[in-house]
Design a protein around this nucleic acid. Structure first.
Lengths: 164, 164
DNA sequence: CGGTACATGTAAAAGGTTACATGATTTC
DNA sequence: GAAATCATGTAACCTTTTACATGTACCG
């Protein structure tokens, strides 16, 4: 479901696009929010067209197919955005590592948290460089807050681990 | 892979347990970190036993099977904890909603953010009640920080939306 | 004319969800 | 003896990843 919503959202926000374009968007602007490769996107667009949520326009230069969101697609997107309950289906590898940290000895634990911190730092750098005009700015703000709180957690945890 | 690690971690942390026990752990202590139902856990334990990572002990009261982590399982767990790179495979419905917020009108957007805020608030309440002795405390601290930063984002975003 | 970026797809496997199915023990 | 909880499983389906496969247009 969420993949459909992401695709409908992109089509609604940036206008008609090809599967290739949409895959690029996932790689760049959407990568801190949702992920999908072209092998997932192409078949999904075909299904969405069959369901009347998008229409496949004419073929361009290299067999390029332009997809446009339909009124039914816009309706589906709007309904989801307004009604979808905030399900907290968390599946977070970093949190799992944090959970299992007490199983490690002091030195291993410190090394593990330092690697987690480096990961957050790298994501912070990416988010800071991201200058999206309007579209996506709220997600960027949320991402920045989450990543910064991750770094704070790492620092707190490192201090805690080094104290003993 | 991560499901295996979570199961090995639980077996390592709390000692021998049945699939049923492990499913309960996922429901309670592990639910803000990783999720899995019994239909995923039971077959995985069988595979892990086949791979020599756990050993299935005798059958108890109601066909209950006790699984114990083996040295090979402990090795696999340790290696993952120490070496697994912090992959940031984000797939976050709330962030997706945040991303697509500019597609909504002012009133719809405000309502959407308020629902997101309520969701974070509910998770905060759950995390605050969680009093885990040692095991899981770092994950709880991380979760608290992430949820609190989510609430801060919601407040900031609501102020921004209401300003216009 | 060779390399890069554009552009699309399929198939197999792995991971995860939902629905169905069964039976034993305990508690009231 | 009825209900709740314990305890395990299978099957169908959906989602996601990885590997394979193909061909076109543009740029130097």
């Amino acid at each position: 479901m969420s993949l459909r919503i992401a695709l409908l959202g992109l089509l609604s926000g940036v206008g008609p696009a090809s599967g290739y374009d949409l895959a690029k968007k996932f790689e760049h602007s959407l990568n801190h929010v949702w992920q999908a490769g072209h092998t997932q996107i192409y078949p999904e667009l075909v299904k969405m067209a069959a369901d009347g949520l998008v229409s496949a326009e004419s073929e361009g230069p290299r067999g390029r197919k332009l997809y446009t969101i339909t009124p039914a697609g816009a309706q589906e997107l709007h309904t989801w955005l307004v009604e979808h309950p905030p399900v907290a289906t968390v599946r977070n590898e970093v949190a799992l590592q944090a959970f299992l940290l007490p199983l490690l000895g002091k030195d291993d634990a410190i090394a593990a948290v330092e690697r987690i911190r480096d990961g957050y730092q790298a994501r912070l750098a990416v988010l800071e460089c991201l200058t999206e005009p309007g579209f996506g700015k709220y997600a960027r703000a949320l991402g920045l807050r989450q990543v910064r709180s991750g770094i704070e957690w790492a620092d707190e945890t490192l201090a805690d681990l080094k104290r003993d």
